[in-house]
Structure formats: structure tokens, C-alpha cells
Design a binder for these strands. Structure first.
Length: 519
RNA sequence: GACCCCAUGGUCUAGAGGCCUAGGACAUCACCCUUUCAAGGUGGUAACCCGGGUUCGAAUCCCGGUGGGGUCACCA
């Protein structure tokens, strides 16, 4: 029993209930205070969607989904000179093709308090804050010419010192600044030159920087537009971004963003997560010379994009149980930043293709049939059932390009024959053998794989040859190839008229010496 | 050069001091299956960067090397 005061005895169970209520109430309050997870992918519209960017977007997307948060697309178009027209649309198409739909972005009707979602359209805000920093002497005008700065940097390099701004214009008086008002100038932030700066990173832990390694960096260009590190900090704050998930190359610049926040008096520092980079086989930064890097290039190669997303997911993240094949939706159930790898990952085309093959064989037939359609370079309106052909061929294909190629003979008789196959399977007896096969098949009352198999058994016995000696020439004569689906399935699907016709054609070509081979 | 990050087979990774004789996947090799090629099955080759500590015990913790990467723009 708990005695609160004389004469009143508080039953313990009631006390516990009250205590429980208190705890529950306070946790509810905390729940409400805690902002929803808001993450962003902020690409610069200077090209197409790159696999590195795609993975960054993917991890952001998964984190948002996992925590019922918002995934925001923001276009980082602060530098007009570097932009490529149409890039924004290309990037959005790339994200969508991977299944990464954003909740807020530049293409959406903006009725939220967070937009606009193009950085160039937020200029008024950036300028106002730059004005504010200038007025409060947290920043200053710098009139140094680029030429002068280049000379300074060179001098420092020569002395093996880090290239940093001298601070020359920091001590300019207000009168001096006013006097030079018409001159070309930039705005620099005053960076504290003592103390340390700590970046809390969920993947890497606390990372410390000595403030002295940073100089007074530029926040506004001569045309009074913001530099990335300034704009990104403001936009993340204004958009109430809670988690900044981005590439490792941004880690060293994070203190600059913290300095901006401090100067502005903001303390809502987002949680950072710096993802390891995707590397080329030689461990260098992956680029064009290493082959495909853009999502659209993979699409054109016929790599299934669901597989690409899955592969990218496994480049730096893993499930606790070692499962590798999982869809974006499945991954969204269990994604966590804590399980992100610290090391840069080398991109491996072979494994990507293996993933593509997995999806090729496990996605619904109708889906594959739809996806391969753009890669079909021949007419398919006559001939065997399109989906049946897809079904028969897909388990041998790693890409949609391969699949389309392997399906071709179902719709077009071979014009040439595999050279190695001809050398191996076509002999002086072949034309005659093909005639025998044609005779045998002609008499079939049922045209299905079972009946076909029996026909080959009968004929091989009658001729006294192995079944394989009939099968290989048949395949080559009907498809022009030595590889492909099982012969009986293939013949069944192709249909008796077509098969008999092709057998005859091939036999004639052999006899007349008009057989064209191809390597 | 300074600062920061990182370090398990060829590649992606598991590993939170004893469950590790280091597990899985891709690739590779062999065999099996088989009408070809795939797929599938079985098995094999192959890794804790080096050196010091701490500990009864280290892939795991600490320090130092080495190596790789990133950043130091009026690019993002």
C-alpha cells in the first residue's frame, strides 16, 4: 500500500493504472511532436538518371515508405549554365520506371506549404536570408576577383597548404563596402575558426571536423543567386526534411551546411546518412567509359528495371536473413539505414543480369509479354500464340533483347543457319533424313509433343540411328539455330504446316547448294 | 598536400568477443540430369590488408602503418 497522506490510503493497483496513463499520455504527446519522416532526393538536372542517383533515390524512397513518411523530389537547378534541357523530365521518367513515385515534386499541383520544388523558384527566400546574414554580420561582401583567388590558391598549394580563402574582405568597413557597391561581388559566410563540428551520421556514427579546415565559403554568387550548400540547407529546413540520405561525397561538405544553420539560428538539424558510393570495376568513380550508367541505357539493353532496382538495393544493403530477391514493396517493409554497408560497392554487370533473369522467369507471363513488345523487331500477328512463345523462351533469356531475339524464328523461317551447327550436324545424308522426318510427321493424326516424341522414337528405330541424330538436324533446319527450347515443345507450338514446310525448304537448300550459313 | 570516410574470396555481402573448421549469392571449375542451350542438382577452388596491443579468447575492441575512395569551386 502506498500512503500519500494520513488518513488516505492509495490502493497500489490504482496507482499503477494512473502511472500507466501518465506514461501513455506523454508518449502520445511525443508521438505528435515528432515530425513525420520527410526525405528528399535532390538531383541536379544535368543529364539522365544515373545508377548512383537511382540508388540514392531508392534508399530515400524505401526509408520514407518504411516509416510512413514523405518522399520528396526537389530539382537542384541553381546553376543555369550547367543545365541540360529536358533533363528534369528524363530524371522523372527514370525514377518512375524504377517504381519510385514521389509524394511531393515539381510536377505536382503545389497546394502544400513546402513548394515550390525547383530550387530556382525559391530565389526570393534565399536572397532574403542572405540579406539577413549580411545585416547581422554573419556574412560579408567579397570583392576579390576569381583571378586573384586563383593566384592565392596556387600560392598556398605551392607551400603545401590547403587552398582556402584568405579572409581578405572580411574586415572591409561598411563605408568601403558601400563605396564599392556597384562592383562585382559575392557573399561569404563567416565561419568560426575555433572549436569542432560534429556530424551525426546514422551509418557512420559521429564524424568530427576541426572548424579551422573550413574557410569563409561563398553562399551567394555575383548575380545574387545561392550556391548549393546555402540553398540546400535553406530548402531542407523550409521543407522540414528530417533525414538527409545522400552519397558519401557530401559528407565532407556537411559542416558547411551546419555553419549555415548556425548562422541562421536554426537548430532543426536533420539526421544524416551518407551512403557508400557505387564504383567501377577498377574502383574508380563509375562513369560513361565503364559502359552503361544511365537507367535508360539499361532499359534499352532489355534489363528488367524491377531487377535493376533490386540489384541496386543489394549494392550496399542486405536483409538479415540473406534473401536477395525482393521487390521494392517487400524491401519497404524491412529497410533500415543501420544495415547499410560502409564500403563502396563495385558494380557487377553479371550479377545484374542474373537478377534480370530471375525476374524474367518469375514475373507473370503477361507482364513479360508486355515488356518485351518494344524489343520485337518482326511481325507477330501471324503464327503461334505470342504469350505461349514468350512462356517457352523466357527461361533462357537474361534480357528482353535476348528474349526478342530467341523468339524470332517462331515468326520467321530461318534464312541462314548456324555455321558451327551445320558443320556438326549436316552431313551428306541430312537432306534425305529430313525427308524421312517430314514423311513421318506428315502422317501424324495428333500434333502434340507426346505424339512428336513417339514419331522420333519410331523413326530412329526404323533408321537404326540415335534419336539425337534426328533431333539436331531437325532443330537446325527448323530454327536455323543449335540452341533453344526443347525440340518437341517447339515443334508443337510452331504447328505442323510450318514445320513441314521448313523441313522441305531446308532439304531443298541443301540439295541445291543454296544453304546460307552464318557465324 | 590537408581533412574526412572505408578495408571479409575475382564481385556483392553475413558477421555486434567464444555459436567461425568464417556463412550465403554472383562469377568460375568439375560432375549429374539431358534432344541442344539454359535452368536445376551435387561437389570443388577461392577471403578476414599488415603490425602491435586489450582479453583466458579478436574477422569483431584500441593504436599505428599500408592501401583505396571522397572533399577542399563564384559545380551540385
Amino acid at each position: 500500500m502506498i500512503r500519500l497522506c494520513d488518513g488516505f490510503v492509495f490502493p497500489p493497483c490504482l496507482f499503477l493504472i494512473l502511472l500507466h496513463h501518465l506514461v501513455t499520455l506523454s508518449s502520445v504527446a511525443r508521438e505528435e511532436e515528432r515530425p513525420v519522416v520527410r526525405v528528399r532526393y535532390a538531383p541536379s538536372p544535368t543529364g539522365t538518371l544515373h545508377i548512383g542517383g537511382a540508388r540514392t533515390a531508392l534508399f530515400n524512397y524505401l526509408y520514407a515508405r518504411r516509416h510512413n513518411g514523405r518522399f520528396i523530389l526537389r530539382v537542384e537547378d541553381t546553376d543555369e549554365t550547367r543545365q541540360i534541357p529536358g533533363s528534369e523530365a528524363l530524371m522523372m521518367a527514370g525514377l518512375k520506371s524504377l517504381g519510385l513515385e514521389w509524394d511531393e515534386g515539381p510536377d505536382m499541383e503545389d497546394n502544400s506549404r513546402y513548394g515550390p520544388y525547383r530550387v530556382s523558384e525559391r530565389l526570393v527566400r534565399h536572397r532574403a536570408l542572405a540579406d539577413q546574414l549580411l545585416a547581422s554580420h554573419r556574412a560579408y561582401r567579397c570583392f576579390c576577383s576569381p583571378e586573384q583567388l586563383a593566384i592565392d590558391r596556387k600560392a598556398l598549394r605551392a607551400k603545401n597548404l590547403a587552398p582556402r580563402y584568405s579572409g581578405r574582405c572580411r574586415s572591409l568597413t561598411e563605408d568601403e563596402v558601400r563605396a564599392r557597391a556597384g562592383e562585382r561581388s559575392v557573399v561569404r559566410l563567416i565561419v568560426p575558426q575555433e572549436g569542432m563540428c560534429t556530424v551525426h551520421d546514422v551509418i557512420r556514427g559521429d564524424v568530427e571536423f576541426d572548424n579551422r579546415v573550413f574557410d569563409d565559403f561563398v553562399i551567394m554568387k555575383p548575380d545574387y543567386t545561392p550556391v548549393y550548400n546555402f540553398a540546400v540547407t535553406i530548402d531542407d529546413h523550409d521543407m522540414e526534411i528530417t533525414h538527409v540520405i545522400r552519397g558519401e561525397e557530401h559528407l565532407s561538405n556537411t559542416p558547411k551546411q551546419l555553419f549555415v544553420m548556425a548562422a541562421l539560428g536554426w537548430d532543426d538539424v536533420p539526421t544524416f546518412a551518407h551512403l557508400p558510393m557505387i564504383l567501377a570495376p577498377d574502383k574508380s568513380k563509375i562513369s560513361k567509359r565503364h559502359g552503361a550508367t544511365a537507367v535508360e541505357e539499361y532499359r534499352d539493353q532489355g534489363i528488367l528495371l524491377a531487377a535493376l532496382a533490386n540489384y541496386l538495393l543489394m549494392l550496399g544493403w542486405s536483409t538479415p536473413d540473406g534473401r536477395e530477391i525482393l521487390t521494392i514493396d517487400e524491401a519497404a517493409q524491412e529497410f533500415s539505414l543501420e544495415r547499410v554497408q560502409h564500403t563502396g560497392a563495385i558494380y557487377d554487370q553479371k550479377k545484374l543480369e542474373w537478377f534480370s533473369h530471375q525476374y524474367m522467369t518469375h514475373l507473370p507471363i503477361a507482364e513479360i509479354a508486355r515488356l518485351v513488345r518494344p524489343f520485337i523487331y518482326y511481325r507477330v500477328d501471324e503464327g503461334p500464340s505470342y504469350e505461349a512463345v514468350v512462356s517457352l523462351c523466357r527461361e533462357r533469356a537474361y534480357t528482353l533483347v535476348q528474349l526478342a531475339d530467341q523468339m524470332a524464328f517462331f515468326y520467321h523461317p530461318p534464312e541462314h543457319y548456324d555455321a558451327k551447327g551445320v558443320a556438326k550436324y549436316f552431313t551428306a545424308l541430312t537432306a534425305q533424313r529430313l525427308d524421312c522426318v517430314r514423311n513421318e510427321l506428315q502422317g501424324l493424326s495428333h500434333w502434340d509433343r507426346e505424339a512428336l516424341m513417339q514419331a522420333y522414337d519410331r523413326l530412329s528405330e526404323a533408321l537404326g540411328v540415335k534419336r539425337a541424330e534426328l533431333i539436331h538436324p531437325t532443330r537446325l533446319s527448323v530454327t536455323g539455330r543449335t540452341v533453344g527450347p526443347g525440340l518437341f515443345e517447339l515443334l508443337e507450338l510452331l504447328g505442323s504446316a510450318e514445320v513441314l514446310s521448313r523441313l522441305q525448304t531446308t532439304a531443298e537448300r541443301i540439295r541445291s547448294g543454296n544453304l546460307v550459313t552464318q557465324d
